[in-house]
Design a protein around this nucleic acid. Sequence first.
DNA 1: TTGACAGCATACTCAGTAGTATGTTTGCCT
DNA 2: AGGCAAACATACTACTGAGTATGCTGTCAA
Lengths: 206, 206
Amino acid sequence: MADTKKPAMSASKAEILDAAAEVFMRLGADTASIDDVARQLGSTKGRIYHHFPSKGVLLAEVCLRAADFVLQKVPPVIAPDAAPEENLRQMVLTHIPEVLRTLPYHKVIIQSYVGVQQKSTTALERELFAQIQQERKAYENLFRNVLQAGMQDGSFRTQNTSIAMQSLLLLINAPVFWYRPRADEPETFVAELSAQLADMALASLR
Amino acid sequence: MADTKKPAMSASKAEILDAAAEVFMRLGADTASIDDVARQLGSTKGRIYHHFPSKGVLLAEVCLRAADFVLQKVPPVIAPDAAPEENLRQMVLTHIPEVLRTLPYHKVIIQSYVGVQQKSTTALERELFAQIQQERKAYENLFRNVLQAGMQDGSFRTQNTSIAMQSLLLLINAPVFWYRPRADEPETFVAELSAQLADMALASLR
DNA sequence: TTGACAGCATACTCAGTAGTATGTTTGCCT
DNA sequence: AGGCAAACATACTACTGAGTATGCTGTCAA
């Protein structure tokens, strides 16, 4: 495996990624123009093209950051000695709030999950999208492993693992499709939502 | 409620919709051009613009057809006197094969579920997208009703109905994201897949 | 037979957009 | 002080792609 360093992103670059995620979410990554992102920043194209060589790379880095968010939060809550059910519950309870905290990023990466093949003309873009796919598979395997462990020790019923994993992942990402933060929303809403989805997820496997 | 007639589409128009669904699925509705759709048909733009006033209307009619597919198959299997659990099972077992049979259409309509606001400049486009949203809500209500019935008679656990319904709908649409028909796939695969997802869906609610 | 219309193809226009080339400013190091 | 590079802004180019205007061909009714 190659180096898995974090290049320590500059503040300006992070600000651009935030704006891009916001705009790509609202207009769609294809429809939105670089000028749209610049307008969201209150600046011009020059700033963006100074930090990113192309629109495709900008999009790829938004998606990559989306994957990184959950990959930094979820693995630490997995306890090797804990029961699969408890592990899965903690994973879901960690995943959902983190996803909703960084919602625009995940709304963007989900656009690519629909199966639209990236055009990816340049080599750098292809490399980045390959890296995204790799991180996605790594994240999937976290869930696949806990699923298999649960089926082995009898806490989960035996069924096709791939189908169960895909369904589970989509279930815990469901709020990305419909959730919209509201001002009058109770402080505890996200936690309660996560708990309900964790219950549903676990129940669906028993 | 307005008239719910079926305008009896011409064969050529249906062929264009099939091609558009296929191309929009592959390239994304935004990225794909009208010329791409024409090339898929082995013809030129002229044919498409003879039947559809704009790209937006073409996209809307693809989405509308996607909604119609399931709306024609699922409601008939709902038996007013049957138990909610049995009704829901039949709905899922009908929904999934129909969706996979008309997969390109549903891959296109899912692109719009991500929340990308349509530009919809013309009045006709706005009307069509309003109609799509209306049919979507009608379809959601089929599931909302059976959920509430099940919670009332105790076959389903009591929980937030909207969250449960959204999660359920996404769960049964999960195969749209990952399923790809394969030549070496067993004849019974779709049926088995549907059965597994129906089990998961029902279990998640108990 | 003819005209009139449906059903396309061909050949354009024109607006928007990715990308580039070239200024301009602002720290920062020596 | 002064120079130098990072971090932008400005002003272009070239091209793609939606939409249009118009031409062509078969079919069918009167």
